[in-house]
């Protein structure tokens, strides 16, 4: 293996990849959320937003490829780390004392991550595929807002979406500050701030995304919209 391979495969190298891809995804989520929140502004606003994206389709495609690579690296590397780390501690303690020395979020990254991965696949096969290719599951139209409403009106879909977003919040709550620690940016003055910002960010993302299915599902049930 060359120096680059050895770097990437070293424990800190792998950690660094997790942090770098993680931070990229954090940035992506911010844009994604901003766009999605236009749903609250109504059908026209949302459709206009999607239409705007359509005007720069080639750029969006390039970003999508990049994003896919970042996701794959993050997921593949995360699973690899998890397997390796399991091997480094093959036997568990009879009494699990980890709640006394670490946070729930930090210990369950693989679990929250796995559920988010399942959600991601579902998400891509529903929204991304319908938006880009197949269109509305009923009539094949490309009425984006209606597609969203269509899925969110299914209770199970809304529920899965909601739960996944809560777990995404957990994942980010740890991941945000963890990335900074990995980059070595742990400073007495700034690190506590980063931890707080991370938590706020995690809540914003979880509430921002998670409220959408709740809102649209409840609206449909209560007969609004």
């Amino acid at each position: 293996m060359g120096w680059l391979g050895r770097t990437i495969n070293s424990s800190i190298g792998k950690k660094f990849i997790m942090a770098f891809t993680g931070i990229s995804l954090i940035l992506f989520l911010l844009f994604h959320l901003a766009g999605n929140l236009t749903l609250y502004a109504g059908k026209d606003a949302f459709n206009a937003y999607v239409a705007t994206l359509d005007t720069v389709k080639p750029i969006v495609r390039i970003v999508e490829v990049g994003l896919a690579l970042v996701f794959l690296f993050h997921i593949f590397n995360g699973i690899k780390l998890w397997i390796e780390n399991k091997k480094a501690r093959p036997v568990n303690y009879a009494v699990n004392g980890s709640s006394k020395n670490s946070t729930f979020y930090s210990r369950t990254m693989i679990h929250s991550g796995s559920i988010i991965l399942i959600f991601l696949i579902l998400h891509l096969t529903t929204f991304w595929a319908t938006f880009n290719f197949t269109g509305h599951p009923v009539d094949g139209s490309h009425e984006y807002f209606d597609i969203i409403i269509y899925f969110f009106q299914k209770w199970w879909y809304a529920l899965i979406y909601f739960i996944a977003m809560i777990l995404l919040g957990f994942h980010l709550n740890h991941g945000f500050q963890s990335a900074f620690q990995t980059f070595g940016w742990n400073h007495n003055k700034y690190f506590p701030m980063i931890q707080k910002i991370g938590s706020i960010y995690a809540i914003v993302v979880a509430v921002g995304f998670g409220s959408l299915p709740v809102y649209f599902y409840l609206s449909s049930v209560l007969g609004g919209n």
Partner: peptide
Amino acid sequence: FGSCTNTYA
């Protein structure tokens, strides 16, 4: 040894 995942335990 395993990798660090910043649990700070």
